[in-house]
Amino acid sequence: MLSQASSVNRVYWLIVAPAIVMLVLFYFVPLGQVLLTSVTDPKPGLGNYALLFTSAAIHKTLLTTVRIAAITTGLALVLGYAVAYAMRAATSQRQRLMLFCVLLPFWISVLVRSFAWLTILGPQGPINAGLMGLGLVDEPIALSRNETGVLIAMVHVMLPYAILTLYANMRGIDVGLVSAARSLGASRFQAFRMVFLPLTRPGLIGAASLVFILSLGFYVTPAILGGGKVMMVAQYTAFQINETMRWGLGTMLAAALMIAVLGTLWALSRVIDVKRLFSA
């Protein structure tokens, strides 16, 4: 029995071995190199990390990153909550149609979607043309190549993540509870605020952390819609490595970003069961 169990074990390891080798070679080794570079280039020590506290340019970038990620999270949560709520209440046939529409953007590359937004929000784009046609504005308003454009496009990219997380959570809530609240004298709003909303708390926390974490590392969308004026950490990192060749600074920023993400997840795990959150 024992030898049989251990031979089964060996087969099991044999099967997963290629995947582990891949992961180590192409993920952990480069990651280690990144971390190593951040403390060795241009000279050994924590000099690069000291810049986090001293460099005004980095402060500005970090502030921009956190601000954009936070606003994106807030907007995606509010809009996503409304969509998920509507999906939950819809008939199963309409539910499937809505789910399809939510998933549709996933099939289109973020790059394509970003350029599409650039066209839509541009000075000659349909939105400005419409506004001017209606006589609401005299000249095109700046919707792209600034933070507004970045936010619009990022919320669009993040919305499906927020919707799906919230929807999974809401589907697990017994609708009978809201009915029960109403029958006991609660108005529609009271039933929502006192019963439904508290029960969606795990979904809200999950969606918020997922969107916030993904937003922190966003590169393509801010790079294209920001028009070089909105600098988030990922783009700043790429700029250090590609343009100024300051590998130490670039890798330090990448490492700092990673630590920030892991830190967020850790802080989250103190409050709720993270594993259950993302498998929901």
Binding site: L177, A180, S183, M194, V195, L199, R201
Partner: peptide
């Protein structure tokens, strides 16, 4: 009107 449901419908929160 007071109501009692089959599955109790107690608020878990």
């Amino acid at each position: 009107i007071g109501m009692v449901f089959q599955n109790y419908a107690l608020f878990p929160n």
